[in-house]
Structure formats: C-alpha cells, structure tokens
Amino acid sequence: MLIFTLRRINLLLITVLLLTLVSFSLNFLFPGDPLVNMSGRINPTPDQLLILSDQYQHNANYFIQYWTYLQHIFKGELGVSMASHLPISSEIINLLPATIELSMTALIIAMCLGIPIGFIAAISHKKITDNIILTIAMLGYSIPVFWLALLAILVFSIQLNWLPSAGQISLLYEIKHVTGIQFIDIMLSESEYKWQAFQNASSHILLPACVVALAPGALFIRLARTAMMDVLETSYIRAAKAKGLSFLQIIYRHAIRNALINVIRHVGLQFANLITLAMVTEVIFNWPGIGRWLIESIYQRDYTAIQAGLLVLSSFIFIVHILTDFIYAALNPLARDTKHGA
C-alpha cells in the first residue's frame, strides 16, 4: 500500500510538472510579448519591463526561465489579470471553491443515482425495466447540456417557479468568505438565519448540479449495467449460488463490490468531462465559479488568466483522478499489493 501511495504521488508530481511546462510554453505561443503574457501587465513602461525581465530572468536561457516560472508558481504568484488587474491567485482562490462545490455535488448526484439504477437494470436484464432504463440513459447522454440548462430554467424557474435560476445564494444572506465552499461557510457563520441560508443555498445548487449530473449519470448507468452483467456471469457467482446463498445475498456480498470496482475506474476519467459540462453550466446559471471566469477570460484574450486557469483546473481534475485511484485500491485487493512476476 505504501508503494502504491508513493507511486501515485510520484505520478501526480510528474503530471503537474508537465502541466506547468505546457502553461509555460503557452506564454510564448500566445500572441504578444511573452513577458507581458506571463505577468499580465499590459503596456509596460521601459522601466517596468526591465523589472519584469529581471523578475522572470527573461534574458537567461529557457531552462532558467522555466525554473524561475516554477518558483513563481509555487510562491503563488500567477501574475495579474490583463482585464481586471487583480492578482490571479486571489481570483482563483475566490472562484475555484464554487466550482469544486458544483462539480462535487454533481458527481455525487450522478454516482448515487446512476450506479444503483445501472445495477437494477443489469439484474432485470432483458426485461422491460432494463429497456426503459437504457432508453432514458441514452436520452440523458445525448441531450446537449446548454439546451438542457435553458430548458430547466424555463420549466423549473420561470413556469413552475420552484427553484432559483441564477447565482449561488440569495443576496439577502450575508455569508463571510472563509473556505469559499458555500455550505461549509454557512455552517461556520454565526448568523441566526443559518438554516434559512442553508436551504436557500441548496435550492440554488440543485438545478445546475442536476443539469451537470445528467450526462455523467447516464454514462454511469451504462457502465454499472455492463459491469454488473459481467460479474453475474463469472464463475464465483455460480459457485456462490451452489453454496446455497440467496440471490440478494449474492448481490450484496459478492456482486456489488466487484461491479463497483469496474465502475470506479471510469469515474476518474469521466470527471474531466464533468468539469467541461460544469463550465458551460456556470455561464448559463451565472454561477460564480472558475469555469465562467475562464470562458470570460477567453473572450477578453486575457492570456495570463487563461494559462493560469488551465493549470489550476487541470491540476484539480488530476487530483480527483488520483483520489478515485485510491478508492479503487481500497475496494480492490488485487490493485493494492505489487504482483510478483506479473
């Protein structure tokens, strides 16, 4: 297990290093002066340019430049935004938690609904339940997310007036920014309207999270269904039947765990997809997350923000990927220890 952990951490470090290499080279590939792209200070005076080139070691070779760039990143200096002239690191700290909150809620909704429904479909294979579930999954997977989001706003916010259509929380509630994740901040605040704020925040997150969760959820249904059907065909399930266990016992004790292993592997891969969906949804629902900020930066040609935002988002996706690897290892004893001769 220790070796497994070390290997994963190693993988994380190397990938982050490669990501920084990409974002570093982006500075040179974007139009304009690399120094301006890196620091974000537009139209610098010759004096400022001199200071900047000293800061980023611009006259040294590429390797030293990269090394200085890395030092800046690890110090948390990602430059300033070309559009707003605010330090990017502080913007990211403000915005990233909202995205984490939205994507994690969506992921939990997708997993908690998708995987059990997939299992039910596999158990009632070739029956009408299976066909209905498959049809719905197919439909859910093929609906474009922006259209679904607009439709959801139209139906649930405007016509039925059940859920709010935009924002993270109503402006009435004043929640201090501590961790950035709304629900934790509400819990930490000492307002007497804590529970009302909590309710309000949940009703705000419900619609966008469901919209983001639909496509991955539909995919999880299909993955869980195939995984479960594969497991039910194996000889250890037949042996368990011969042991005299009832069908439910077999499902609970042997089938679910083995099927989950195969699904969890794909969750990490699907997370990148989910973040992309979340970025589009953030724009439509006016969610104050990093995705919306990044898309706005792209519109404004804010190169400094683009490269920093890409770096942070991809690192986040990769960290989640590693986390699912750990969950996979916890479920699967075969992945935990090093195999000899294999």
């Binding site: 194996t234 000889s235 250890y236 037949r238 042996a239 368990a240 011969a242 042991k243 005299g244 004790r253 042997h254 765990r257 083995n258 292993i261 479920l331 699967n332 004893p333 075969l334």
Partner: peptide, 23 residues
C-alpha cells in the same frame, strides 16, 4: 434448490476463479 443446496455440494474446476477476488 433448498433441498439440493442443503445436501449436495460442488467443487468447480479452476478454483481460483470460483472464489470472489475481493472478499
């Protein structure tokens, strides 16, 4: 099934694949 599973037991070929790998 209840009578058979009470009185008859079976061992399969390839024992490795007949044991649940995660339990």
């Amino acid at each position: 099934k209840s009578i058979i599973s009470q009185d008859v037991a079976m061992i399969f070929q390839e024992p490795m694949s007949c044991l649940d790998p995660t339990t």
